[in-house]
Simulated scan of single mutants.
Amino acid sequence: MKSFTRRATPLWLFLSFLVCFGCAQKSTPRAKSSSGVVAFQVRSRPVLEGAITEYFRYAGRLRSAELLVVQPEVPGRIKRLLREVGDRVREGDLLLELESTTIEAQRNQAKALMEIGKAAWEDSEKNWKRSEALYRSQGVSETEREKTSLQRESSLRQYEQSQAAFRAAEYALSQTKVRAPFAGKITLKSCEEGEYFLPGAKPEGVYTLERDDRIFVDVDVPSTDSPLIEKGASVEVESSSGWLAGKVISKGERADPLSSSFPVRAVVDNPKGWLKPGSVAGMKVHYRGREKTLVVPLSALSEGDTLFVKEGNTVHERKVTVGLRNPEWVEILKGLKVGERAVVEGNFGLYEGALVEEIQ
């Protein structure tokens, strides 16, 4: 047993040495400089003059700016359905067509009755004018005059009724072809060709058309944030291909009784369809900002509002006065100049006058 212990001891010492050596190598932030002196490895960025805003971050619910249930306003059998789910349409594109034979016959009949009514009214108008002339010359009696006047009024009413019937038939015929009222995307198809459609029988209509080139973004804002958010405030919404700009268009005045949050809605242009209605996206709501001010990455700032300025191969600790800040940038009101280089990476453990080397 003793001989086993003596043989194992060097092995354990060797393994312990490897572990300690590996940890020491991993934690050191230093490397030899070109002169052979050990230096801190850092990354620095120039102090810039630019704009900065403070913002809140939320998860926004996306919905189409406009959604329409597409359906004809007259009953009929569906002759053709020209679009499928996922199709994009332009304003005025034909979406569906109903069988129109019966409606065309009704329209032709209404037109014929209107023409008959027009002829009857024109005849009664002539008779009335003749009767009026004869009455003035005492050629007809008062009774005959009133009779022709009543006939004229009756034929006029019948003609007007036939005109209304013809217009209704024309409108019904126009409804057998339904076109897209705006450009968008077909997101639901609820009927098939050959099916008889009765308006009101299907709440989902024939198609659902959504306009997705503009997106509403709804978010519930905590009561602590609400006073800082105003209508017209700029927003950014995150998509798979970048951030899209928009603005707040409404803010509720009453808080939800359960969550104490206020509803806020923004609108964002979505010309390339990057944002998908029905999904959730990250959202920034900007509430305060400043133009033309000194800014540095927030990672440059250390505790006590200090940072390190790189001058050549050394760094100097600098006390600064900060202003606005967000998760990425911080405004420097005092203590830095444009063009100076602030250390933004590798600043942990630095000290005044430390030797540094820029990370390439």
Rank of each mutant, 00 (worst) to 15 (best):
N127S: 13
N127K: 14
K129P: 10
R130M: 09
E132W: 14
E132D: 12
A133N: 15
L134K: 00
R136K: 11
G139Q: 01
G139E: 02
V140K: 05
V140H: 04
R145T: 11
E146I: 09
T148V: 00
T148M: 07
L150F: 13
Q151L: 14
Q151P: 02
S155W: 07
S155P: 05
L156E: 07
R157G: 12
R157L: 09
Q158N: 14
E160R: 14
A164D: 04
A165G: 06
R167W: 11
R167E: 12
R167P: 11
E170A: 03
Y171I: 07
L173E: 06
S174I: 09
V178Q: 06
R179G: 08
A180G: 11
A183D: 05
A183E: 11
G184N: 06
I186D: 06
L188S: 15
L188G: 13
L188V: 15
E192K: 11
G194Q: 10
E195K: 03
E195W: 14
Y196K: 01
Y196A: 00
A201P: 01
K202H: 08
K202V: 09
E204G: 04
G205R: 00
V206K: 08
T208H: 02
E210W: 13
E210M: 12
R211V: 00
D212L: 07
R214Q: 11
F216Y: 03
D218G: 07
D220K: 08
P222R: 06
T224C: 04
S226C: 04
L228K: 13
I229W: 07
V235R: 02
V235F: 03
E236C: 05
V237E: 03
E238H: 15
E238F: 15
S240L: 13
S241R: 15
G242V: 11
G242D: 09
L244R: 04
G246Q: 00
S250E: 02
S250G: 01
E253N: 02
A255K: 06
D256T: 06
D256L: 13
P257E: 03
L258I: 13
L258C: 06
F262H: 06
P263V: 02
P263S: 03
P263R: 05
V264T: 02
V264K: 05
